[in-house]
């Protein structure tokens, strides 16, 4: 990846992290950790590889981005706001009465959200349906689904992966946000989902493991996935929960959902006053 492009993407992921922290910070509490761990992927998708247009969010030919780990809604909203899908001011309404930005992704409320999610394991099935529709209509859009490692304890994830593998859905790429933590503990201490890549291969998929915060590696993996015919790809992203915000990262398992003080978010966002 050219330095100029990488600098641009890094600037964009910094911006998205700031929007995200301001959004949750103004509310005071939220799903910080698992939102931060997918910001680099969202940056690569929305600012580099995904065929999307904020001015035409319902374009039938657009690429679909499904946030199956629906509690990372704030990360998706931050990316969408930064892209101009809705006015930046709306980020102040997260979880306020009557908001278009609820905790978990809602396709009927937020412009640019392709699927409602929040009950874990469901978004990935819908993404499989979108990919099947694309095949039926001979359209060349691509579907990107983002699932969590904790989420993958849901049996439905494996029903969806089995079908995606067997139907050879090369127009679907599944990203595992492998941040290794869930609400109660480390995933490995509860019910490990590893070796995730080997499991996907056993389900007739291609699997690629990358550092989920390395944008060049992400880009290369996505390009490889899109260039692979007759195989659905899962990109296992090794990530860090809370990445990019030291005091979130330091919380470890506690970073899933926690309170942010006004001082903390204003310092991080370099926003002393409104």
């Amino acid at each position: 990846m050219e330095k100029q492009k990488l600098d641009f993407l890094n600037a964009k992921s910094d911006e998205i992290r700031k929007i995200l922290i301001e959004m949750i910070g103004r509310l005071g509490v939220g799903h910080v950790g698992g939102s931060l761990s997918v910001v680099d992927l969202l940056t690569v998708l929305y600012y580099d590889l995904a065929k999307v247009d904020p001015k035409n969010p319902k374009d039938p030919d657009r690429d679909r981005i499904v946030m199956s780990k629906g509690h990372a809604g704030p990360a998706l909203y931050a990316a969408l706001a930064s892209k101009g899908y809705f006015p930046m001011d709306e980020i102040k309404t997260l979880n306020q009465s009557g908001t278009n930005l609820p905790s978990h992704c809602d396709m009927n409320k937020t412009v640019g959200v392709d699927m409602t999610a929040g009950s874990l394991g469901q978004g990935i099935s819908a993404a499989v349906g979108m990919a099947l529709a694309g095949k039926m209509d001979k359209k060349d859009y691509h579907v990107y689904a983002i699932i969590g490692d904790g989420e993958s304890q849901e049996g439905q994830v494996w029903e969806a992966i089995m079908l995606a593998g067997n139907k050879k859905l090369d127009n679907l790429t599944i990203f595992l946000d492998n941040n290794r933590m869930q609400i109660d503990d480390y995933v490995d201490n509860i019910n490990s989902v590893e070796p995730f890549d080997k499991k996907c291969e056993a389900f007739n998929m291609q699997a690629i493991r990358v550092n989920g915060h390395d944008k060049e590696a992400l880009e290369n993996a996505i390009i490889k996935a899109k260039n692979t015919k007759d195989k659905c790809t899962c990109i296992v992203m090794d990530t860090i929960k809370g990445y990019g915000v030291p005091w979130a990262e330091n919380k470890g398992v506690g970073s899933h959902s926690f309170s942010i003080s006004e001082k903390e978010w204003r310092e991080f966002c370099n926003k002393e006053t409104d």
């Binding site: 039938p60 679909r64 396709m107 392709d114 699927m115 394991g121 469901q122 978004g123 990935i124 099935s125 819908a126 993404a127 499989v128 349906g129 979108m130 990919a131 099947l132 529709a133 694309g134 039926m136 209509d137 049996g155 439905q156 029903e159 969806a160 089995m162 079908l163």
Partner: peptide, 22 residues
């Protein structure tokens, strides 16, 4: 489409198809 014996996935797949106008 026959998804096999996987009713939860069947419903999710239908929802995804419906978002695309099916």
């Amino acid at each position: 489409i026959n998804v096999g014996i996987a009713e939860a996935n069947m419903i999710g797949v239908c929802a995804g198809l419906a978002t695309c106008g099916k």
